[in-house]
Structures are given as structure tokens and as C-alpha cells.
């Protein structure tokens, strides 16, 4: 790993937003390969952040500050990635289900997925099943990611899956779910393809769904 790549990696790990931007620009100015910067510097750092979170070493705000540094770096890198025809990891339509106004968990998931080079279409909170359907139809998304924090709103995940089926889109898209009251068993029962207990593992789940 070059010094600059190492600097980018550590600036993201420590959540140093300004430094990340400067180092990414410096590396690009020196002719670095954008895909190497993305994969070996930035995504590698976010993967390590996620791992440390799962181990209980990093806390949620530290994950968030790292994701923000990553986003800033990505903002600079994006035009170069487009030019070099580097593809995103996948397209994700994300939202908190109908009737549920909680958005912090969903926002964290979106930031972590963005940090792993997924393209995010964030529908927000209290999302009607039909809006998920329309977004999948319009964007040709690879994954629908649904969040719920209430036992009373969890059933709307199944309603959304049924709406995707009714629209003939279910076979085109993977569905992953998460949120405090959810379990793998519940995800299986409603016919979701994946379950993530937290924002970090949402990334691993999304990757494994698209690799399957």
C-alpha cells in the first residue's frame, strides 16, 4: 500500500473529512488509479470500520464520522470513477416502511452502503409499499432495503414484498430487512432474501445477496 493510500485509509478510519478529501485529490493528481483508491483505500477502510463496530470496538457516531469522510472522498472520486467506467457495487432502494417515522437506523445503513460504493435511492421514512414498487421499477434497483423499528409496522415489510410480487418485480430484486425488533426468523417468514441486525452487517448482507 502506498503512503497516500495508507493516508486515505487512516483518514477515513479516524473520520477526518477534510484530510480525506485532500489526500484523495492529491492521489488523483498524481495519476492514481481511481478504482484502486476506491477499493484498496476507501472501501477497505470502511470495511475495517464496520468490522470494529461489529466487534463492539467502534461506536455508532464513530462509524458515522468515518462514513461522512468516505462520502466526501467519494464526491471527489466519482467523476473519475465514471470516466474510468468503474461500476457501483449495486443499486439499493432504501426506506423505513409505511407507518414508521424512525429514520436514524435507515440513514446509517444508507451511509454504510454508500461507503461500500453502493448507489442509494433513499425514499425516507413512512414509505408506502407502492413507492418502493415505483422506485424499483424506475431505477432498476438490485436491492430493496427496508427498515422498521416498531412491532406495529413490521408487517408492512411483508405488504411491500407482496406489492413487489403483484407488480411482477419480485424476481428482479433482492429484498433485505432490518430494525431493532426484527430477527432472521421473521425475515424468513415474510419472504425476505436477507436480514441485517445492524448497519455494518447490512453491507455484508447486500454484498452476499448480489454475489448469490
Amino acid at each position: 500500500m502506498s503512503d497516500l493510500l495508507r493516508d486515505i485509509y487512516s483518514s477515513i478510519m479516524d473520520g477526518r473529512q477534510k484530510e480525506t478529501a485532500e489526500k484523495v485529490q492529491e492521489a488523483l493528481d498524481q495519476g492514481a488509479d481511481p478504482s484502486v483508491l476506491l477499493n484498496e483505500g476507501m472501501i477497505a477502510a470502511m470495511t475495517e470500520v464496520g468490522k470494529l463496530f461489529e466487534e463492539g470496538e467502534y461506536f455508532v457516531p464513530e462509524m458515522l464520522v468515518a462514513a461522512r469522510a468516505m462520502q466526501t472522498g467519494l464526491g471527489i472520486l466519482k467523476p473519475y470513477l465514471v470516466k474510468a467506467d468503474v461500476k457501483s457495487s449495486g443499486k439499493v432502494v432504501a426506506g423505513t416502511v409505511k407507518g414508521d417515522l424512525h429514520d436514524i437506523g435507515k440513514n446509517l445503513v444508507c451511509m454504510m452502503l454508500e461507503g461500500s460504493a453502493f448507489e442509494i435511492i433513499d425514499l425516507g421514512a413512512d414509505v408506502d409499499p407502492q413507492r418502493f414498487v415505483e422506485a424499483v421499477h424506475q431505477t432498476q434497483a438490485d436491492i430493496v432495503a427496508m427498515s422498521a423499528l416498531l412491532t406495529t409496522t413490521m408487517p408492512n415489510m411483508k405488504v411491500t414484498i407482496e406489492a413487489l410480487k403483484a407488480a411482477g418485480l419480485r424476481d428482479n430484486v433482492k429484498v433485505m430487512v432490518g430494525g431493532a425488533p426484527l430477527t432472521q426468523q421473521y425475515a424468513d417468514e415474510i419472504g425476505a432474501d436477507g436480514f441485517a441486525p445492524d448497519a455494518s452487517r447490512a453491507v455484508a448482507t447486500a454484498k452476499s445477496l448480489l454475489a448469490a
Partner: peptide, 12 residues
């Protein structure tokens, strides 16, 4: 925010 203040103070 789910964090340990003593650790955050030193690390972040």
C-alpha cells in the same frame, strides 16, 4: 448515541 464517553474523549 450508544458510545462510551471516556473512550470517545480519547479516540474521537
Amino acid at each position: 448515541q450508544g458510545a462510551d464517553p471516556a473512550i470517545i474523549e480519547k479516540r474521537s
